[in-house]
Design a protein around this nucleic acid. Structure first.
Length: 224
DNA sequence: ACGGGGATCGGCT
DNA sequence: GCCGATCCCCGTA
């Protein structure tokens, strides 16, 4: 990497960062910098929304029914990209845990920082907090497509993730967006109150009746 | 700003 | 054939 690029973006996260539980990686990814470099220029943004997809007991995970041509990158080493197409758009994940575990973290939204005009043009959006709000939009804005499927994110070329400014932020957890299976699992993480987050910005609790304890409430009103 | 419904096509059964 | 880890548009507020 060029020194100027390091000053601007920091070093790419190493493989150790990704070689952990996807829930830990998903939370830790918030605030980090997603960086994309093409001939057209450098674009980057602060990650503000992620979702974890587990290797076991998670029917929504693409790897839950075994290895296929599409999801092969998920079975690769940690720190690789898994890029796939759905509903006519692309989504980008980072592979977590050791090779052949097949877990990943979906990057759902970023706050545009560098290369804003280029990203606006590619995404066809004028309002800043609309440019990368959603996994398909951020891939469009950063020119991420399946040619980057399996790309090594630890090399600091073309596409990588670097440490951000280290600012603390409040993290909210919720069920994942748009998944049919395992829709109750609280595996979505986002920065509280951030305008660039897609979907619901508050945690909608499951219906109260479904969560009520089977034991009747105490008469005296005391609890815990 | 938020929520509902339709478009649309590749991957998989 | 079926079904989406989505987006966009169009209601309503």
């Amino acid at each position: 990497m060029h020194a100027a690029l390091l000053l601007e973006t920091g070093l790419p996260l190493r493989q150790d960062f990704y070689n952990r539980d996807p829930v830990v990686v998903a939370r830790d990814l918030l605030g980090k910098l997603l960086v994309r470099r093409t001939r057209d220029g450098l674009c980057s943004g602060r990650i503000v929304e992620t979702e974890a997809y587990l290797a076991r007991n998670d029917e929504a995970c693409h790897a839950s029914r075994g290895k296929t041509r599409r999801n092969a990158a998920m079975f690769g080493p940690p720190g690789r990209a898994y890029v796939y197409r759905i509903h006519r758009v692309f989504c980008v994940n980072v592979v977590t845990e050791p090779e052949d575990t097949a877990s990943a973290v979906l990057i759902r939204a970023i706050e545009p920082l560098a290369g804003v005009d280029l990203m606006k043009r590619r995404a066809g959006k004028a309002v800043l907090h609309h440019v990368c709000r959603g996994p398909g939009l951020l891939c469009r804005a950063l020119a991420i497509d399946p040619k980057l499927d399996g790309w090594d994110l630890t090399q600091g070329r073309r596409l990588w993730i670097a440490a951000g400014d280290g600012d603390e932020c409040e993290i909210i957890t919720s069920p994942r967006i748009g998944v049919g299976a395992a829709k109750e699992l609280p595996l979505r993480f986002f920065v509280s109150g951030h305008a660039c987050v897609s979907g619901r910005k508050t945690y909608r609790a499951p219906t109260a009746t479904a969560r009520l304890p089977k034991r009747p409430p105490k008469k005296d009103g005391k609890s815990r």
